[in-house]
Amino acid sequence: MIKVDSLSFSYPGEAIFDGLTTSIDSGEIVSVVGPSGRGKSTLLLLLAGILKPSAGNIEIDGVTRSVASQEIGLVFQDVALFLWKSVIGNVLFGRRAGASPATRARANSLIASVGLTGHEHKLPSQLSGGMQQRVALARVLANDPRVVLMDEPFGSLDTRTRWAMQDLVLSLQCERNFTIVLVTHDIDEAIYLSHRIFALPKDTDRLEEVVVPFPKPRIREGIMREPGYATLRNRLLELQ
């Protein structure tokens, strides 16, 4: 469980969060939406222990976090992989992953689980954007994180690839039950993936929590026809 208690953070001359308090359950998927510059990525970096709050604290499973930890995996949109390492080299990068035969076999099984068997020795430049994001996911999962923080991970992918990646994330999360905090600009993506959505409205330091009322597992084609989908979508758009 992630507990954020009275969290404050500001960049020079600009307060981003002032006394933010919330919590995220283990195994929950939470999306963070809001206009650019409102602090979505900053919130992820605070949760990851990379930025230090000016006040308040963040607890993960009862332990206060102030430094980056292997229990929290990070996935970014456009800097997904180390370009100088092969697919297997990227997946084996984490200290826990190591390079023993057992961990190598585990890395290969993770690569298989994201559908990239046969591409182990390719460089990132030889992969498509979607394939790079799959490797980034496998690399994070190699450390068995309890929380995965994703900063617009599918922002640069075409619609079909984005949908495939969303389904892959859902199946991996269902299998391993890690918590996901996902920053996205795509309201439909947020509704499809999340249990709850945190909206960071413009010109306020509030955080609006919106529960997504549709049961899981969801069917992409069906969810948009659910009663209340349009209302929820409009509400989230208004909050941005």
Partner: peptide, 17 residues
């Protein structure tokens, strides 16, 4: 790009690594 460093830190990289 600091994101490379953040990713590496979150993956448990030592200073040497």
């Amino acid at each position: 790009d600091p994101r490379y460093i953040w990713m590496a830190q979150s993956l448990g990289a030592s200073r040497q690594k």
